[in-house]
Nucleic acid binder design. Structure first.
Lengths: 211, 211
DNA sequence: TGATAAATGTTTCGACTCGAAACTATTTTA
DNA sequence: TAAAATAGTTTCGAGTCGAAACATTTATCA
């Protein structure tokens, strides 16, 4: 995988001080890692620009975006925490800023008073529609054919699923494709909550997703 | 692209206060964006864990990794700045920390005294070999067949190239596939610098890459 | 040639992010 | 009914970030 080589070079002003460095060349394994990191860097950069009008940080926009895509079982602070891979305190603060900007509102759960649902407001949706995904990224995607885009998505989904499983993280996924999603005589039902699901519901992301 | 729908729900304790929200469902365009963001989140999280032993932040590890993969024309602070999409001051500080941890050393350029080359030390290489790419990510990749992995890389490269072009950013790329890379009777030469390139050189990433 | 502009990099500042830990309130467990 | 678990907030200190001012060196060009 790695090739090792020892090289020499001079250090700054102090003449003839030599440092021995070990140098390795990346195997093909690194390449995919590298590509994802670089795409993520560019995305973060563009996201930062898009958020400047409202003074929103990238991480806050990510949280807002997540909340716009998740279902009613997954719109809590803890779910956002899982999704972003951060700690409770950090996420709590980010959400406070989204709330102060009137992009989300907090709605207490009626059954369990500990739980607060986070609902994206009209202003929040409008902001997302303008900015998310960033325009230049969307443009870059169009260079792929429909088949190529589908293929990319399929393969990345495979990697993501495995990665989520390896890290023991909640496997967020689309309700429709979840093993708890059941078609009954009364319509579509969630096997976990036993609640009825609408055609819109099943298109959203759920934190309880399982295959 | 988007489907709009107006929904109603009750707000917290104040009974019967209704909020009108506009809700939209993501078209397929969002999906690729979403996948990359989520993979990046997981990578950042695992990177954070891996760096704890040395007290290294994710962004510092990314800089170190970049420096281990780039050539002698691209191992400067400004190149790292371009690569990470951050500002000079920020990167300068991150590099100072890498230097204080003896993971890189600074080497003044002999021709242009403004330029400082950043060389990864043996300790730096060893740290990277242990931690980069993160183990669980590497494991997740193995779920792909060789062909699938190749296909994914090819497609993501296409997206990245377009994205870099759209943002007007430096298009980092492997020397070997650059248009300035020339095969002459004396060996391989860089058309920009007119310098000879070794077989090792041409495998590294260059900030002057062009197609 | 000599003044001005441009490029490389550092430092400082204030706003923001992050994890850790302590804390409240509610629900579940035993 | 007491103890444990869950959802969420607040506070603290370390670190990240961009912006701007700065120093040094090199390039431009009149």
């Amino acid at each position: 995988m790695f090739r090792l080589e020892t090289i020499l070079f001079e250090h700054s002003k102090s003449s003839l001080v030599k440092y021995v460095l070990t140098r390795y060349y990346c195997g093909m394994n690194d390449e995919l890692f590298n590509l994802i990191e670089r795409l993520a860097n560019l995305l973060r950069q563009e996201t930062r620009l898009e958020g400047q009008s409202l003074g929103l940080q990238p991480v806050q926009q990510e949280a807002l975006y997540y909340l716009s895509t998740c279902n009613r079982y997954s719109d809590t602070m803890l779910a956002v925490t899982e999704f972003l891979g951060l700690t409770k305190g950090t996420v709590s603060q980010s959400l406070k800023i989204l709330e102060s900007n009137a992009l989300i509102i907090k709605v207490k759960d009626k059954k369990d008073k500990r739980i607060t649902h986070l609902k994206v407001t009209k202003a929040g949706r409008e902001f997302l529609m303008k900015t998310c995904p960033p325009q230049k990224f969307t443009d870059a995607i169009t260079s792929l054919s429909v088949d190529e885009e589908f293929e990319t998505k399929t393969l990345l989904k495979k990697v993501l699923n495995n990665y989520q499983q390896a890290t023991g993280r909640t496997a967020f996924g689309v309700c429709q494709h979840c093993k708890f999603n059941q078609q009954t005589s009364d319509g579509i039902v969630c096997g976990l909550t036993k609640e009825a699901l609408s055609n819109d519901d099943i298109m959203l992301i759920c934190k309880e997703y399982a295959v």
